[in-house]
Amino acid sequence: MTTTLTGQSTRLAVGVTRVTAPNPSPMTGPGTNSYVVGTGPFAIIDPGVDDAAHLAALRAAAPGEIAAILITHAHPDHTGGVATLKAATGAPVLAHSAQLAGVRDEALVVDRTLTHGDTLALGEVTLEALHTPGHTADHLCFYARESRWLFAGDTVMADVTVVILPPDGSMTDYLNSLAQLAGMAIDTIAPGHGHLLDDPAATFAHITQHRLDREAQVRDVLDPTTPRSAAAIATVLYPDLDPRLQRMAAAQVQAHLIRLVELGEAAQAEDGWRRLTR
């Protein structure tokens, strides 16, 4: 396990350098990981925040042409530095075409859209774009074919639970994306937050089971006759939660509730959600 250190440029492997942005928080862990990938030309995955020292470290880690700025998803903690980095390098910004309705970087300008299976040649590294909706509808992971590294964005995070927030987040899509990734030959996961994960199969299995266990808990809290709000259910499931995260927890519960409706196991009314009996 390679520890993440904010502001420090860390060479992780041939053609992979990580620089962690100075934005630690309960939601971002040590901070947002930015990656410089390739052996010339280079791509920068998720520039992170608009911090001069951070962006300078990214440019210094790419001793040659920066051919692309790649975006896993349009959340500001991943994209805040895009405009400054583009102005300094002239590199085009590449991201998925889906437009987010909730939390998003409204200032983000994308030069070219990527679809599932698109590739970029970066010297000895070939990156493949994988559309992995769930955390957000526009989410992309990037897969290095030669080394079998997965740059996972916020589909997988180390020591921090991925938040699924409607309307842009979908629990069903998230589980489908995890299943897609679990079926691939991946040796190392480089997450958007936290340290490297070197047992992808166990990681995907653990996350999937955790989500299914939480889904069962939400189902059990629901009553067939008395509707309950997502916030009320979150209070039951997360009794000791940091007050700063309570609204986020309620939204996470809502994502599970929407999935239960999709499965035909719950129904939504104006005054809350109830379990359907069979």
Rank of each mutant, 00 (worst) to 15 (best):
G80M: 07
H96I: 00
V82A: 06
K86Q: 15
L100N: 07
H96D: 12
Q99E: 13
H78T: 00
L70F: 01
L85K: 02
D77S: 13
P76H: 13
A101K: 15
D77M: 10
V93W: 07
T89S: 12
V93M: 10
H78Q: 05
D105R: 09
A91P: 04
P92K: 04
A95F: 04
H75K: 09
K86F: 10
T72G: 01
H73R: 03
V82H: 05
V103N: 15
P92T: 07
L70V: 00
D105W: 09
T72I: 00
G90S: 14
A88D: 13
T89I: 05
G80L: 06
R104K: 15
A88I: 04
T89E: 11
K86Y: 08
G90H: 12
T79H: 01
A83S: 15
R104F: 11
Q99F: 10
A87W: 06
L70A: 02
L94G: 08
G81C: 03
V82T: 13
L85G: 03
A74Q: 14
V93K: 10
L85P: 03
G102S: 13
L70D: 00
L94H: 07
A98R: 13
S97K: 11
L94M: 13
P92N: 07
V82E: 03
D105S: 14
D105F: 12
G81W: 01
V103D: 14
H78M: 03
R104P: 02
T72P: 03
T84R: 10
A95W: 03
V93E: 03
